[in-house]
Design a protein around this nucleic acid. Structure first.
Lengths: 232, 232
DNA sequence: CTTTATCATATCGTATACGATTATTCTTGC
DNA sequence: GCAAGAATAATCGTATACGATATGATAAAG
C-alpha cells in the first residue's frame, strides 16, 4: 500500500494534506517537515516544497524562513478579517444565488442541513462541521460560477482553522437555525432578506467563538506580552 | 548592474513576472522557459519552477505538462466566467464600501478617475488600463479588508489578460463614465444604486469586448506563422 | 547553581545532474 | 516532389548533493 509503487500526482498530495488540515487530523501549529512528508508519500522534498508553498498561499500553512512549515494558527485579527471578508463576499454570492436558485438547488441545500442535523444528533462534531462548510460551498455553486465557488471554498477552509482554534467546547450547535433560515429566504426569492440573514449568520458564528482568550499565547508571544512594551 | 550580485527574493521575481504580464509586456501565449527566466534573474530553474506554479494558481500562466509554461490565453468561456464572478463578488464589495466610505476615500477614487482621463487624453492606453484596474482595487480597499482586496486584485489581474486578448482596437474609452457614476452612487450612500451600477458597469466592459470572434485562432496562428509573413 | 559561549546536529534552501518526454530535422520510401 | 518515420536536440520533471542557518546540548565561567 504505502510501500513502493505510487505515482501520486502533486494535486493528490496537495489534496491529501489539505483535507488532513481542514478536517482537523493535523492540528494548528503542527510541524510539517519536508523530509517527513516526503517519506510519507514516497517522494522527495523537491516535490513537497512547492506543495507547501501552495498551501501557504491558501493561508492554511505558514512557512517560517529557514525554520520550516507549520499548520497555520490564524491570529484573532486574521480570524476577524476572514469572517468580515466572508460577510462581504458571500453577500454577493447569496444575492446571485437567490436570483438563480431553482427547486433542485433548494432541495440540495435542505438535504445538507438535514445531514448536518443528523450528524450533530450523533455527536459527530467533525462531520457536522464539514457539512457546515459544504453548505456554504454548495450555496456558491448555485451561481454556476467556478471562480466564485473556488473563492468561497478558500474562505471556508480558512475558517475551518479558525473554529478549530477558537471554538468554545460546548457550542457546536449554534448555527443550525441560521442555515435553515437562509434557505427560506432564498426559496422566497427575497434577495435583500437573504443577504441580511447571511451577514447576521456569519456574525453569529463569529460571536460564538472564544476570541480574546489566551488561546494563541503559544503562537504569538508578541501579542501575549504586548503589555511589556519592549522598545525596539 | 545585472551582472552578478543580486540576492533577488522569490516574491520579487514573482512580482516582476506578474507585472510584466498584467501590464502587457508579455503577451498571452508567450512561452516562459524555465532556463530562460533563470538566466534573466540570475538564478536556477529550481527557484523559477515554484514561481511559475504560483502564477498558474493565479490563472495568469498555464502550465502544460512536459511542455512548459505560457502566459495564459483565457478562453471566451473563461472570460465570461471571470466577468460574472466580478459581478457577483464586487457587488458585495461595493455595498460594503458604500457603507464605509469616507470623504477621503471618495477623493482618492476621483483622483484615480482624473488620472485615468488624463492618460486617455494622452493616448496612453497602457497607463489608462492599469488605472482602470487600480480603481477597482482601491474600491476594494475601502473595505479595509486585506482578504477582500487580494481577491479583487486577483480577479482584476485575470481580467487584464482578457482585455489584452479581446479588446476591440478602437474601444479604449468606453468605461470612463462608468467609474464616475459609481463614485456618485457611493458618495450618495445609495447602496442598492451602487450595486446596480457596478453590475451594469462590468457588463458594459464585457459587452465592449470582441468575443465570439476568431481572435483566439488568429492569435495562435499569428504566432505559429510569425516567421512567414505579416498579414497586418 | 545560574548564565553564557561554543559546538554538534538537524533541517531548510539552492544548485547541479540525470532520466523522461516532446519538438524538430533529416532521411528514406513512394 | 511529398509524406511518413527515425534520429537528434532541446526542455521539462525529479532526485540527489551540498552549503547555510537555526535549534539543542555541552562545557566553562561567574
Amino acid at each position: 500500500m504505502t510501500s513502493k509503487t505510487e505515482p501520486m500526482t502533486d494535486d493528490e498530495i496537495h489534496h491529501e494534506i489539505f483535507d488532513a488540515i481542514v478536517e482537523g487530523r493535523l492540528s494548528p501549529g503542527e510541524k510539517l517537515g519536508q523530509d517527513d512528508l516526503g517519506k510519507v508519500f514516497g517522494v522527495s522534498k523537491t516535490r513537497i516544497r512547492p506543495i507547501l508553498h501552495r498551501l501557504a498561499d491558501q493561508k492554511i500553512v505558514v512557512i517560517e524562513p529557514m525554520r520550516g512549515a507549520f499548520v497555520a494558527r490564524p491570529s484573532v485579527e486574521e480570524a476577524r478579517t476572514v469572517n468580515a471578508a466572508r460577510q462581504i463576499i458571500e453577500e454577493g454570492v447569496i444575492r446571485a444565488a437567490t436570483r438563480l436558485a431553482q427547486p433542485r438547488h433548494i432541495r440540495m441545500l435542505r438535504d445538507i442541513v438535514a445531514e448536518e442535523q443528523s450528524a450533530r444528533d450523533r455527536r459527530n462534531g467533525a462531520r457536522a462541521h464539514r457539512l457546515t462548510g459544504e453548505f456554504h460551498c454548495e450555496l456558491a455553486r448555485i451561481t454556476g460560477n467556478d471562480v466564485v465557488s473556488e473563492m468561497v471554498r478558500e474562505l471556508v477552509s480558512r475558517d475551518s482553522l479558525v473554529v478549530a482554534l477558537y471554538q468554545r467546547p460546548a457550542s457546536s450547535g449554534c448555527s443550525l437555525g441560521g442555515h435553515a433560515d437562509l434557505i427560506d429566504k432564498i426559496a422566497a426569492g427575497d434577495e435583500n432578506a437573504a443577504a441580511h440573514a447571511m451577514r447576521h449568520h456569519l456574525q453569529d458564528v463569529m460571536d460564538s467563538l472564544d476570541l480574546g482568550g489566551d488561546r494563541r499565547k503559544s503562537q504569538a508571544l508578541a501579542t501575549a506580552f504586548a503589555h511589556l512594551e519592549r522598545p525596539d
